[in-house]
Design a protein around this nucleic acid. Structure first.
Lengths: 238, 238
DNA sequence: CAGGGGTGGTGACGGTGATCACAGGCCCAA
DNA sequence: TTGGGCCTGTGATCACCGTCACCACCCCTG
């Protein structure tokens, strides 16, 4: 019996869309074998925490199925979501490489599956496999650019509407239609969107109303239709 | 004739405080020699731009003398300063490694000197020298954590006073005195501080007044005396 | 079917910080 | 000495958005 998603990193690689950033795709046969020896697979329910901000790094997680919410919180309970990770993403890499505590909390947003590689085995693996070490450096560099984009969003955009528009655009680019609009399945609550753009649930709610009124977007059930990208880009301006 | 600061990376290494994060200190003799072959040194006036956000990466800069302001701007002209770099720091590393445009602008805040290593030579150098590649990965990882700290500051701290207190504390930790206070030479204008914490010059000015009144800090000429760290920490709370 | 938890809409209110405006200070160069 | 930049302080104003409050859903599960 077999889960519909691959239980094996290499298998999974074959089924997932080809993206260079998939750290462990297209490895040499030998490296792939070693990888399968040191990894273990687990299934997680919705709400499961892969790791929590501040914990010592136990290892890295390679997401096979399910979305994961990466977030960081202040003591008073304010939370910001820094990234929604998807199948194929590698989580906890920075913490493991630099041996510092996990800088975020990783929580499953839906039932899913992940491969786990313990820290020691992984570092050992890296020493043996030069080609993978290079991939890791590139991945770290990508993570850095993502973080920087976040800084620009939080620091340069002043109004919530600007950040909201930016978020909509980032969704929209993934599913372009030929008529200029695009559709996205909306899986986030207003609360979660608020935590992404750093505002309150009420404000997000009002932003949806406003943008609907201004014909920038449209909601059909849980699918979000983004009309008028140019207008959104004008709001963003940066 | 010789500048007071080292013209040579290795010389400079000897004169600068010993910190592991100095990428090119304590290398093997061979690696050091290669490094000196591919580097070139230049002196820069105040206001000089080492590189500008969006440019293709030409190479990395190792700062020998002078402070550098790293910043990113939006189209409308709003600017945030993400870091003040000091002697010993390596600039442009991420861009060079990942071959993406510089993500920030680096501007000399005072006259200074830097070693430049062209992209191609540097990448070649990395391939030859495994030990340095590892250092680079560690440095990238440190950069990432710095960026993350920035995200937490911008995203989680709500009021300007919170961010201001946080900034003061980050200065204060560098120069602890035995009585709990600490002194810092204040080299930034209110405008620049505003760009660091993402607010306006006027607000910074008012914050200084307020904090002086509350006995949190004191100004003697251009030296800033930070009294009462605990109170500042209470303001930060996160 | 009722009850309840999670979610979404919307009104009212008030604090806060951005914006504008202006005045005084400092430093350097002519 | 006298300008003219830049920097700093501070008042007045006002839009905006966070906060609180409440209600209407929707979808469970009992």
């Amino acid at each position: 019996m077999r889960a519909p998603y691959g239980l094996n990193i290499l298998d999974n690689c074959l089924t997932c869309p080809v993206r260079e950033e998939h750290l462990f795709c297209n490895l040499s046969v030998h490296a792939g074998q070693r990888l399968n020896e040191i990894k273990s697979t687990a299934v997680y329910p919705k709400g499961a925490m892969l790791f929590i901000e501040g914990q010592q790094p136990r290892g890295i997680f390679v997401l096979c199925a399910g979305k994961t919410k990466l977030s960081t919180s202040s003591r008073e309970g304010k939370t910001i979501i820094t990234k929604i990770s998807d199948s194929g993403d590698v989580l906890g890499l920075n913490a493991v490489i630099s041996n510092r505590p996990y800088e975020v909390t990783a929580e499953m947003m839906e039932p899913g599956q992940a491969n786990f590689i313990p820290r020691d085995s992984f570092l050992q693996f890296l020493k043996e496999q030069g080609e993978v070490a290079l991939r890791v450096a590139e991945q770290l560099s990508r993570n850095y650019y993502t973080a920087y984009e976040e800084i620009r969003t939080l620091g340069l955009a002043t109004s919530p509407s600007e950040k909201f528009a930016k978020l909509l655009l980032s969704w929209s680019t993934k599913t372009p239609q030929n008529d200029g609009s695009s559709q996205v399945k909306l899986t986030l609550t207003h609360e979660e969107i608020a935590e992404i753009i750093g505002t309150t649930r009420e404000t997000v709610s009002r932003l949806f109303s406003e943008f609907k009124k201004r014909q920038l977007l449209q909601l059909k059930g849980s699918t979000l239709i983004i009309r008028n990208r140019p207008a959104l880009e004008k709001i963003v301006q940066s």
